[in-house]
């Protein structure tokens, strides 16, 4: 049982890292970004490219993946999202555009890497006890867990203590007021994309350390990501973190109770629905003022 909880925490931590960007972009831009999952895939394949091409360990590719994810996010902000905002595009138009971006990214990866699953090339790892607890994890799982927790704490510090983070929260409260308070909203939005896109790509590398890579990886991960941010209260970064861990743990623990592995994703959604029946605005949704 503990072992399943531990597996769930690893999965949950990775979901949390990837979900932060999705919820930040929603809260600041009111954009439900269906291309977010493909940033996760892009990160994983960036690490694969470096791993196969240069022989680096996937963990060493994390900073590169962050930069690639952030750069693509900025590019799309300049080419697509900023223009659509200026034209005051409707929410539905933005969603459809994001699905288009998602398809383009995914098929680009299929074009270069083919549709079949691939693995990082590295020595086989044995699961070892983690921190003296009665659970075992591979070195990569341990790394993914620690890296996720560090990133989550870093995002917390950013939002709570830095001017940029406070400004990002201000923007999610009221964009027009942010503009007339003298804040250059376009600049803060760009930083939001850097953080969101970069973290999604990093989440992809961590995810790839624990299972095979395939071009639909991010697309399939998108549903648990949405489940996590809706569970937490959409637009609340802390909700996304809590939701990510909850979804991950519930999924993995369900296997312990005899749920077939192929259905464990569904269990995550059942958990989300039950939680929303109890907390209709999400776990963190009630503490919001208008």
């Amino acid at each position: 049982m503990l072992q399943y909880v531990a597996n769930g925490i690893v999965v949950g931590a990775i979901i949390a890292v990837a979900a932060i960007g999705l919820t930040l972009v929603y809260s600041i831009l009111r954009l439900t970004n269906f291309a977010h999952g493909d940033f996760v895939t892009l990160g994983a394949y960036t690490a694969l490219f470096i791993n196969l091409g240069l022989g680096w360990r996937p963990a060493a590719a994390l900073p590169v993946a962050f930069v690639v994810g952030a750069a693509l996010a900025i590019l799309l902000e300049l080419l697509v999202w900023r223009k659509m905002r200026q034209m005051r595009a409707s929410m539905v138009a933005l969603i459809v555009a994001s699905i288009g971006v998602a398809l383009a990214l995914r098929n680009l990866l299929v074009f270069f890497y083919g549709p079949s699953p691939q693995n990082f090339q590295q020595p086989v790892q044995r699961a070892t006890p983690f921190l003296g607890l009665p659970v075992t994890m591979t070195a990569d799982q341990q790394f993914a867990l620690v890296a996720s927790v560090v990133l989550v704490l870093a995002v917390h510090a950013l939002l709570r203590y830095t001017t940029l983070g406070k400004t990002m929260r201000a923007l999610s409260d009221n964009t027009d007021l942010a503009w007339v308070s003298g804040i250059d909203v376009d600049r803060v939005v760009t930083w939001t994309w850097i953080i969101g896109g970069g973290l999604a790509a990093v989440g992809g590398v961590l995810y790839g350390m624990t299972r095979p890579l395939y071009p639909e990886l991010g697309w399939h991960l998108l549903l648990p990501l949405f489940a996590a941010i809706i569970l937490g209260g959409i637009g609340h970064p802390y909700g996304a973190i809590a939701g990510g861990f909850l979804i991950g743990i519930v999924q993995e623990v369900s296997v312990y109770f005899g749920v077939p592995v192929e259905y464990k994703i569904a269990v995550g959604f059942v958990a989300m629905i039950v939680a929303l029946l109890l907390f209709p605005r999400g776990l963190f949704g009630e503490a919001s003022y208008r």
Binding site: T163, R169, A170, S172, D173, L177, V180, S181, Y289, R290
Partner: peptide, 25 residues
């Protein structure tokens, strides 16, 4: 500098944070 009629503060930020982001600008 402009004070709108309604929705003229950032409600989910503390009073200090409201002043801090303006001071940073």
């Amino acid at each position: 500098s402009y004070v709108p009629q309604v929705r003229n503060v950032f409600p989910n930020l503390t009073v200090r944070e409201n002043l801090e982001i303006a001071a940073a600008v």
